[in-house]
Design a protein around this nucleic acid. Structure first.
Length: 187
DNA sequence: CTTTCGATGATCT
DNA sequence: GATCATCGAAAGG
């Protein structure tokens, strides 16, 4: 399975399928253990209501990044999906740090490694992702997306931190992972 | 342990 | 002018 093949499916297949992949930026990163799907007709999605200046990359090529500023402070990163009608993406919520731990500790200055990449804002900070990476192609350096040796076991729960379509079970977590951002119960 | 709240800025109405 | 796909520190049990 390649990134191009993975990203060809609908958002939910992509969200479930990307769990277990290793994401690296300049050799720094880890295993994707938590994501959320934001679908085409999803009131919680930034793409809901059509393309604007901010969400433009969600309507661009699949397999690229959509990075936006959250609450004026943090950056959050999505993998753009190739969904009919476009405007769908998968929000990267947590990684299990595996590569470049020192680099991530420098950037995050946190005592517990558990907090390095457990949350969308934390993850981007640890990997050094910013608005400058919006629209970037994940299949090209400095990015690497490496498939897992075997398909991860995925658990589906409700999404976190949103105010609309709260009841939809569109958060995907690797079963048993202790690196997710946790809160809220399974759907 | 849990809950509350301020920071901070782009985006949209 | 209000909203927000967040985080971390502070306050309360």
């Amino acid at each position: 399975m390649t990134l191009g093949e993975l990203v060809r499916g609908g958002v939910h297949d992509v969200a479930a399928g990307i769990i277990g992949w290793t994401l690296l930026v300049d050799g720094v990163g880890g295993r994707i253990v938590e994501v959320e799907a934001y679908a085409e007709d999803d009131p919680a999605s930034h793409a809901f209501g059509g393309a604007t200046a901010r969400n433009a990359s969600m309507f661009g090529p699949a397999g690229h990044l959509y990075v936006y500023r959250s609450y004026g402070i943090h950056w959050c990163a999505n993998v753009v999906c190739e969904q009919p009608g476009r405007g769908a993406g998968v929000l990267l919520r947590a990684l299990e740090p595996t590569h470049g731990l020192e680099r991530m500790r420098d950037r995050r200055a946190v005592a517990d490694d558990r907090l390095l990449c457990a949350g969308p804002g934390r993850l981007t900070q640890a990997l050094g992702l910013t608005g400058a990476d919006d629209g970037a192609d994940l299949s090209r350096p400095p990015f690497e997306l490496i498939p897992p040796a075997s398909q991860a076991v995925v658990e589906r729960t409700t999404r976190i931190g949103i105010t609309r379509a709260v009841e939809q079970p569109w958060r995907y977590v690797e079963l048993g992972s202790s690196w997710s951002s946790r809160r809220r119960r399974a759907a």
